[in-house]
Structure formats: structure tokens, C-alpha cells
Design a protein around this nucleic acid. Structure first.
Lengths: 260, 260
DNA sequence: CGGCTCGTTGATCAACCTCAATCAGTGTGG
DNA sequence: CCACACTGATTGAGGTTGATCAACGAGCCG
């Protein structure tokens, strides 16, 4: 896997001062990448600890209460809900630089489950400190609001995919969006391809489809020379043609179409 | 319609000071209703103008740029996207007390269209003032973040409805959610019923269904004695049974089921 | 009255699901 | 070293949910 995994200790419980615990040089690592650098700066300043998780483990579960919020430092998380009979809806994926688990306060339960897709490390930030940050006022407020707003716009994209696009359109649009997010998160791979840890079941659960149907859909997209996907890699072979397949509305800010 | 419509002038362009324009006694009207009162307080303090719109008019359209953000004072808006061939996905409904159209700055285009469902009046707030508010820090930052977070959680609910619930489950869950939102927005009607301005097409476009199928689904829900809906009114006749039909996950914070 | 929106119902169709089997790759314990 | 289990991808056959197309009635309005 191309996901950088910095350390493997499960949890450091020592209540050391933040500056001592969080000296990872995150700012250096992400220099120049504006929104992500700002999130990492918040993690650097306000986190009291960090935690490394193996793939497939829960960070928190729907219904739990906790005093913390998390910033993804490396790896992928998925946020999801599961209905009683096992149906699963993946609500979002959290890439490095994502803020996960914001709530109004420690007495508000998590409304979804967060589970790692790859080995992942997160910074742990007390909600109390965030509340303080907001009251006092700083550029961090704007960063946090922007992160939430981005998440909301992403959810709107997903709703449109799930509700009003065909399977082929939805998968095409999903791959375009993910490719862009992966690059923005600084995970760009060699050449055109990016590392892509999701299984077909993940894609299906994010788009309201079955893994079987995602498989069939990907087969046709591959056959048409639009994408290469598999073995943990994704390559958008023909972005314009794929955007065409995705039934992107003409005004779409992210994927402007050539004609009109 | 039970939606209170305070005035009908189309637009006051006079750049009068906020306090002069916004003396509507909103704080009095919403006293005791915490989150909504806080939003109205923000509108009271930061709005430069207000605007009243007839039903079925656009407040703003996807792709537009503007320096403003809006707070709904009365009436309903719908936020939606339309694909090139006319397919429409309704992303959210905005009830009184909702914040609509937040963006990082005036150069960021709207990513969806906002259109009135009923006659509506909104307070107009310059994005600049919001940015200032966040930098300076105040309780308003928390209010704004909470509003965004609530919108995100609502979008997650919708995604689960659209992606992983059957039409019957989705409609049941949607009606439960809307009933709760209407009451929280202070629009509770007489007795069990609430005023409900949405058409079956609105419901369908919010849930990724056709109006025809919503009609058939509502028929069975009515026949089973679960809801009364029509003529601009909605009445949840049997909340527990409807939650049962909605396949609400057992941990759901909003609609706890009786058993487990 | 004509035109419009909204709700309703029927008949048909297809997109996507379900069930099932196979296969490759990978890890594991004997 | 191999049998075995397990995950993830793939393909086939058949079934079902919800879409599409169409028609009609009620209410409203100019």
C-alpha cells in the first residue's frame, strides 16, 4: 500500500502537553497545500494524543458518546450506518486532512460509525478545545467551517449520484470525485494513476448498489477504455469522456464539460 | 396555508443600517427555542436587508456567485440540483431558522439552486460579515457550525433513505423526519397534524423516486392507518408503527424503537 | 370555459437485485 | 509442502422493485 504509516503504537495515554506529543512536522509535510495544511495545523496545536489503527477497525460507533473529535493524519476511514438487517450505507470516506466526528458537545452521541479502510493514524482533539477555539475566534474557525461545508457539498454530490443517476453514471461520477479528492489529499500516485484502497463492495455501499452490479458496471467502463481500476490502483484514462458518462450537469463547478 | 407571511414587498434595496431594517422582534417570537433563536439573533444582528419571495421563485441558482448568505425567516425553500436531461435531486428543505447558501467566500459559486416552495422571506447577510464574525469569535460561530453540522447529519439521513431503504421505508422515514423538523421550526399545527406544503413530486425528488411511485406508497401507508397526508397537512397517526416501517436502526438517536 | 397543477390508477418494462457458482490470491496451521 | 479457509472479483440465470407511458378526475384560476 502506498499509504504512509508512521508508527504503530496503539495508544499513548500519557497526558503530556500537546506540543510535546504532536511534534510530527505536519506543517512541513503539507506545506503549500492550503486547506489540508490548515487542518494539520489545528491537529498540531489542539490534539492531546494520536492513535494508530489497523485496517478494518472501528474508531467510533454510532450511538457512542465521547469527548473527542479526530483529524485523519494518514490512511482512509469510512463513515457509515448499518440498518438492522445488515444493509449498509457508506456516508463518506475520510482521507488525510479530514475532520471526523464533530458534534456540538461530548453529550451528543456519534450519529454514524467510523471504521478504517486502510491502516490509519488520527490525531485526537478534545471537543472542549474546539469549543474554546470557536469562542475565542481565529482562522481555525474558518478552517473548521470550511471542512464541514466541504463535507456537506460532498454529501450533496453523493445524494445526486444515488438518487438520480444510473449505476453507470453514478460509478463514473464517483470515480471522478474520488480521483480528485485523492489528489487533493496529496496521495497522487505515479503518472495518471492514484492508489485506491476501496473494494467494489465499498463503492456499492457508497452508491446504493450491490457489489455484483458495481462489478458489471466497472467492466463496461473498462471495456470502453474510460478507466483502469484494480489491484489498489485507479486511473482515469479519459476524464472528459468519463465526465460525459457521468451526466455531469453543465454548470458543475468540479467537472466542467467541454461543450457548453 | 399556515405559513406566516409577514410582508410582501419584493425587495428593499436601500442600504439602511441593519438595526433599522431588522427590527422584527424575532428574538421575542422565537424565545425559548434555542438553536432557532440563536440563528434569528444572528440574522437580527448581521443582516443588511430582507427579501420576500412568492412561491416557486429562485433565491439563487447553482453556478451563480454572490456576496450573500441567507437566513429563512418564514416559509419553505428547497435546495436542489438538476441534471441536463431534467432529472432533479432535492438535497434539502430549508425551514424557518435555516441558514442557506454558506460558502467560503464571495468568489465561490453556489453549488445548488435554492427555490421557494411557499411564499418565503429571508434575511440577507453579507458573507464578509460572517467571515468577520468567525475571526472575532463569539457564540455565533458555534451556532453557525451547529447549523452546518445539522445539515450534514440530515444529508446523511437522506443518503441512507435513498441508497438503502425501500420506497416504503424511505417515505416513512422521510415523513417522520419532516414532522420532527416542522415542529422544531415552530410550525406545529393544531393537534397531531402539521402544515405540510410539499407535493408528492417534491417527496419523490427528495428520495430518488417518481411522483407516481410516491403516490402508490402513500396509499399503502394511509391504508395501514399510519399517516394522514394531503391538503397541505401531515399527521403521523402511529409514530411507533411508522418508525417500525421505516427500518430505523436500533441505535437511531431520533426515533428510538420500543423493543431494543 | 380552457388551461393548469396535483393526485390517482392501470399496464408494461427494465434496471438492478438475489442467489449461486467459480476462480485467483493470500494467509495459516498441520 | 499442502489442505483449508477466507476475501474479493467475476459471471450466469432468474426475479422484483420501481420506472415509464398513458389516461383521467378534481380543484383552482384567469
Amino acid at each position: 500500500m502506498a499509504v504512509i504509516h508512521l508508527d504503530t503504537d496503539v495508544k499513548r495515554k500519557s497526558p503530556a502537553p500537546a506540543s510535546a506529543v504532536m511534534g510530527f512536522g505536519l506543517r512541513r509535510e503539507a506545506a503549500g497545500d492550503e486547506p489540508r495544511a490548515q487542518i494539520f495545523a489545528i491537529a498540531d496545536r489542539y490534539a492531546i494524543d494520536r492513535r494508530s489503527l489497523a485496517a478494518g477497525t472501528e474508531l467510533f460507533a454510532e450511538g457512542e458518546e465521547s469527548e473527542f473529535l479526530y483529524v485523519v493524519l494518514s490512511g482512509w476511514l469510512m463513515l457509515h450506518r448499518i440498518l438492522e438487517d445488515g444493509r449498509r450505507q457508506i456516508l463518506d470516506f475520510a482521507l488525510p486532512g479530514a475532520v471526523v466526528g464533530y458534534r456540538a458537545g461530548p453529550d451528543a452521541a456519534f450519529r454514524f460509525t467510523a471504521e478504517t479502510v486502510t491502516p490509519t493514524s488520527v490525531a485526537i482533539i478534545p471537543l472542549k478545545r474546539i469549543a474554546g477555539l470557536l469562542r475565542e475566534g481565529s482562522a481555525a474557525s474558518l478552517t473548521l467551517i470550511s471542512a464541514l461545508n466541504d463535507a456537506l457539498l460532498g454529501a450533496f454530490d453523493s445524494m445526486t449520484d444515488i438518487g438520480r443517476r444510473t449505476a453507470r453514471e453514478a460509478v463514473a461520477h464517483f470515480l471522478l470525485r474520488m480521483d480528485r479528492r485523492i489528489r487533493r489529499a496529496g496521495q497522487a500516485g505515479a503518472g495518471h494513476a492514484v492508489s485506491f484502497p476501496l473494494t467494489q463492495e465499498h463503492i456499492g455501499d457508497a452508491l446504493g448498489l450491490t457489489a455484483v452490479h458495481v462489478c458489471r458496471t466497472l467492466r463496461t467502463l473498462r471495456a470502453d477504455g474510460l478507466v483502469t481500476i484494480g489491484c489498489g490502483r485507479l486511473c482515469i484514462e479519459d476524464p472528459e469522456a468519463l465526465a460525459e458518462e457521468a451526466a455531469v450537469y453543465s454548470i458543475d463547478h468540479d467537472f466542467p464539460r467541454l461543450a457548453s
